[in-house]
Structures are given as C-alpha cells and as structure tokens.
Amino acid sequence: MSQLIGNSSHTKKWWVIPGTLAIAFCFWALPAGPGWQNYAPDWVSLILIYWCFAIPGKVSLGSAWLTGLLLDVVSFGVLGRYALSKMIIVFLAERLAFRVRIFPVWQQSFLILGLLAVETAMLTLLGMTLGEVDYSYGRWVACAGGALLWFPVYFVLRRVRHWARLP
C-alpha cells in the first residue's frame, strides 16, 4: 500500500547522507602510500558537494561546519580549519546547485575543480597564518585528482540516491 502512495517519507532512507559521509571519512583517512601522501583527494568535500547539488537545501551550513570540525578532529589538526573550509564550499555549492543540474557531468567536473581549488587556497592561506610554513605542491594535484574522481563519485552516489529513494 505504501508503494502506491508514492514518495511517503518512511520509505526514504535519509540516513544514506550521513552514511556516505562516514564512508568518505574512511576513504579520506586511507593512507595513499609513501610519497603519495599529499596527492590524495578530499573525498569528504566531493561527497558533500554531491549532496549539495543533488538535494539542494538539504545540507545546511551548520552540518557542513560540523562535518568539517569532525574532520579536524580525525586529522589531528587545528580545530576549526576544515570546519571553515567545508562550510565555505557548501555555501558556494548551494549557490551553484540549481544551475549545475543542467550541465553534463564532464562540465560539472570543472566546477568541482574550481570548488576544490578554492578550498585548497583557503587551507593554504590558513596554514600560512597559523605558522605552518611547509608548502607542498601535491595539494593542487589532489584538486585535479578530485575533479577527475567526480565522474565515479557522481554515478555511484546517484545509484545510491535512487536506491534510497531520495529526491
């Protein structure tokens, strides 16, 4: 009977959003191997941006901020750094969300590149202010890697979203 009624809310699995984020954390924490450390893409950003595009308005600034704070804790870094950067990119992604829906995936990945570049620039600036002097170029490579990864992330999460019957 509930199938006939359509999108009634108790068939929607909203928990996939935090679920995919939790998996993103684990992917984020995966060691990339010696020497490859800095080239690892920021999975948490990618997944946050996907959900912003897919269900605009669902990911609030506050939850993006909390996710970033959690990432700060997990990464053992200065508290507040990722919180700020995740919140900013979610803010930008929400602004772009409606326009992006009509773009094909490969054009979207350029936007992803832009968003990731903004985040990396912000983190670098914060790093310089906080006095962490070492600067490595790998993070920018990680941006490009993240943009390339948008393809599989988009398609996989779209399947997940359909399975969870989210709008």
């Binding site: 924490a29 690892a40 920021d42 870094g77 790093g127 962490e132 070492d134």
Partner: peptide, 12 residues
C-alpha cells in the same frame, strides 16, 4: 598509517 597529511611532516 592514516590519511593525507596536509603538511607531510607529522605522523600519528
């Protein structure tokens, strides 16, 4: 062995 280490100079 955990994660991308932003500044490459710390280990856990």
């Amino acid at each position: 062995e955990v994660g991308p280490d932003l500044y490459d100079r710390t280990v856990l």
